[in-house]
Design a binder for these strands. Structure first.
Ligand SMILES: [Mn+2]
Ligand SMILES: [Mn+2]
Ligand SMILES: [Mn+2]
Ligand SMILES: [Mn+2]
Lengths: 217, 217
DNA sequence: AATAATTTTTAGTTTTGTCTAAATTTTAAT
DNA sequence: ATTAAAATTTAGACAAAACTAAAAATTATT
């Protein structure tokens, strides 16, 4: 499988887990910053290889084969992110681009030994689940902070936006995976939240709250 | 720089260190298992980018830029090999193909942090030197076992052939980097050597002796 | 020095993945 | 039910990196 084919599969996989319908050509094109015509060409090729179900004008979904292949790429991406943070001392906002490259290294032995070396982690540095060697994923209950009621006590367990800007904002506010977050009050006007984060009070916008995953304690 | 350009540079670099002349189109083609015409095309492109000195029909050599670029690829290749052996428990005959892929990952931060993580090794699992971040190489005195006189005591410090077959032969004979090797006698007829390796007697052909690097004690 | 053999380059194709522009299909709006 | 708008596909072109076959240059041999 080529570098490019792998990136298409991964994109379709991510779009499928967020939305839950057939994926449109344009959605793929937008996410990959390419043109719809290029997407169409690739979808034909992937369909030929039985990696996607594709009917003209009808959108696309992953086949069993395609889904497993996509999960293996995601597995590699997230394991490498763990490696970079845990072993090489990268910060969580620096790992994505390097992992985008490392995810395409082809060696089952490598990825499984890496998995062992890292202690078979189930989540990456952003709280996203890591598929095991068979593609199984441990699903953890989590909700967006924006969807939680007042006076609830929670733990931060993930981020929805993984951009450098957002992650660095969280660093600045000392919010990390594992931080305790209590919702003190919500401002009606703009849905901003008054929080207690690790015993420090903090006000965050609804945009921030809509990108933080938490678990109720 | 593309994957392919990097492979050409690396090949020219390796050919240059072995031979010490201008490198021929055919030599590159043979090493890369490609056609001479493809090599010519690429040499033009590399010359355009000031990575090689190329004049039609006259062979090719690396420019300063090209040499540094090649060394950085070799650096990555060898550091990854150390990682695979030291941290992931690969054996020395399994690492080359994976390192061929990993050497193309583009991130200065990654390779320098990896270097630190590994304790700034100066040699890879096959005894080959690892260039530092500036391209400097610590050259270690070593000679082929086939060029050493009788009754000399030596330490194995490297291999010339790094094929799986040769490395597995060495494993079978319990010869590794650091093994003590004493030459007991040489057979005139076929230049085979009677050795004492780690206090075990062993006979090896001249082909073996011509692929083992040793240091006199 | 002339010719033969070898090496290298050029010219013209092919494949992969991309693009633009035009045509087609689907969806939305009147 | 038409028409307009949007989404998608097709057609044709291009760049990268490979190939084959033919031409040109170099090297070796007589
Ligand atoms: Mn990532
Ligand atoms: Mn991640
Ligand atoms: Mn190697
Ligand atoms: Mn090596």
């Amino acid at each position: 499988m080529t570098f490019s084919e792998e990136n298409y599969l991964k994109t379709i996989y991510h779009l499928t887990t967020h939305l839950n319908t057939e994926i449109s050509t344009n959605a793929i094109a937008e996410k990959m910053e390419t043109k719809a015509s290029s997407v169409t060409d690739m979808l034909k090729k992937l369909a030929e290889k039985d990696l996607v179900n594709y009917k003209k004008y009808q959108g696309v979904s992953l086949t069993e084969n395609g889904q497993l292949a996509a999960k293996m790429i995601v597995r590699k991406h997230r394991l490498w992110e763990v490696f970079l943070v845990e072993k090489l001392d990268f910060s969580w906002d620096e790992v994505h681009d390097v992992a985008e490259q490392l995810e395409h290294i082809k060696s089952e032995k490598l990825i499984n030994k890496l998995d062992t070396f890292l202690g078979n982690p189930t989540e990456d540095p952003h709280g996203d689940p890591i598929p095991d060697a068979n593609g199984n994923i441990i699903k953890v209950e989590k909700q967006l902070l924006s969807e939680i009621g007042i006076a609830k006590k929670t733990i931060c367990v993930g981020v929805r936006d993984t951009s450098t800007e957002f992650l660095q904002y969280l660093d600045k506010q000392k919010i990390a995976l594992g931080s305790s977050i209590e919702i003190l009050s919500k401002e009606e006007f703009d849905a901003s939240l008054h929080l207690k984060v690790n015993n420090q009070e903090l006000v965050v916008s609804s945009k921030i709250a809509g990108n933080l995953y938490v678990q109720l304690i």
